[in-house]
Computed example of a mutant assay.
Amino acid sequence: MTTWLKLSSAALAAGLSLGAHAQGAPIKVGLMLPYSGTYASLGNMIENGFKLYVQEQGGKLAGREIQYFKVDDESDPSKATDNVNKLIKRDQVDVLVGTVHSGVALAMAKAAKDSNTLLIVPNAGADAITGPLCGSNIVRSSFSNWQPGYSTGVVMAQRGHKRAMTITWNYAAGSETVKGFTEAFEKGGGKVIKDLNLPFPNVEFQALLTEIAAQKPDAVFAFFAGGGAVKFVKDYAAAGLNKTIPLYGSGFLTDGTLEAQGASAQGLMTTLHYADNLETPRNNAFRKSFALTYKANADVYAVQGYDAAQLLSAGLAAAKGDIGKKDVIGAAMHKATVDSPRGKFTMSAAGNPVQDMYVREAKGVNNEFRSVAVKALADPARGCKL
């Protein structure tokens, strides 16, 4: 009897020690982002934004140190499942943060659901992530593809354009953004006369620009981002189209790209959930902190990374730092109100931001705020069953 008690006491002590160690161990955050190719700069800005928020909290969230693991997803959907499993199975991360490319993010969402791993999407707008693939362990700190497309459609219809053409890459982000645009533009009395697209990440635009010139629409709506956005805007101006056919875009057309686009982008109107010169104490403090830390100007990608960390912080605070309480963390992230540099936003039941969408004008190297395009725009979350 005495021996059994001694053994039981020893086992209990060992268990308590393990639990305490687990609670004191760093939380493993797996960053699966593009660190090479067209979207490399976007991946870096997201990572920097995320780490800035953690740094501002003294390097801890809810009293827990953060340990980072990184995988370059190369914006390649064919490698996405293998890449995400490096983080889930090899590194055994507690939280996934990623990514930019919608096709890659869809694979991440499936893997997160299968393994019940927490996933925070800091950019990719694939509608399915907060639609049919929605989950209690999945949230997004950015937007759905539908949102900036829809808000630009509202603006173009209000400006009196009647005949529009669209142009984008032929992949999820492009086609879904265009669908959102068409829905709002045609609801507002406009008509999309033709949708043009080319394979991702092809940047040979000449034939399509010739077709735009021939069709003579009232305006063009474009979705491109990163290096592709730089080349498209330059080519559009070089063809002289900007003088006769106004170009509009989802904000990614000019976000993080204005310096490279130069004079070609000046005056371009876009809509997005962030503008560089939002005159709020929160945004001003964020931009100053980012510039001091990274010697670079923040952009929407940095904001989305920063807010991904804010969502994780809200979840961990509700669980008192216990990463094992995934249900508590997931529920708290879904109910969070985020004090973001873009302005405060809430989360939809499906885990997508309900946020103001802004009209911005490209001036110098900034996308300057002009007006609110749509207040508190919520994604319809079609197909989500939570």
Rank of each mutant, 00 (worst) to 15 (best):
P281D: 13
Q304I: 01
T254V: 12
F232S: 07
G240M: 02
A239E: 08
T293H: 11
N284E: 14
A275P: 10
L272A: 07
A225N: 13
K288T: 15
H273A: 12
Y236C: 01
T271A: 02
T280M: 10
L258P: 14
F252Y: 15
Y294M: 05
A298G: 12
Q261D: 08
A222K: 03
Q304F: 09
K243I: 04
Y306K: 10
P217M: 06
Q261C: 02
N284F: 03
T244Q: 12
Y294V: 03
A291C: 02
T254G: 02
F290H: 10
G227L: 11
F232H: 09
D276M: 08
G240C: 04
Q215F: 00
G262A: 12
G305L: 04
E279N: 15
G240N: 01
A285Q: 14
A275K: 00
A260Q: 12
Y236D: 01
K243Q: 15
K231D: 09
A298S: 15
F223C: 00
K243E: 15
Y274W: 13
A263H: 00
Y248C: 12
T293S: 14
A302L: 11
A239H: 08
S264M: 09
Q215P: 01
L258D: 08
L272C: 00
F221N: 07
K231V: 06
D255I: 06
A260N: 08
N242E: 06
A229Y: 08
H273M: 07
S250Q: 15
L247C: 03
A239P: 06
A238C: 00
G262M: 10
T257N: 13
A237N: 07
Q266E: 14
G226S: 11
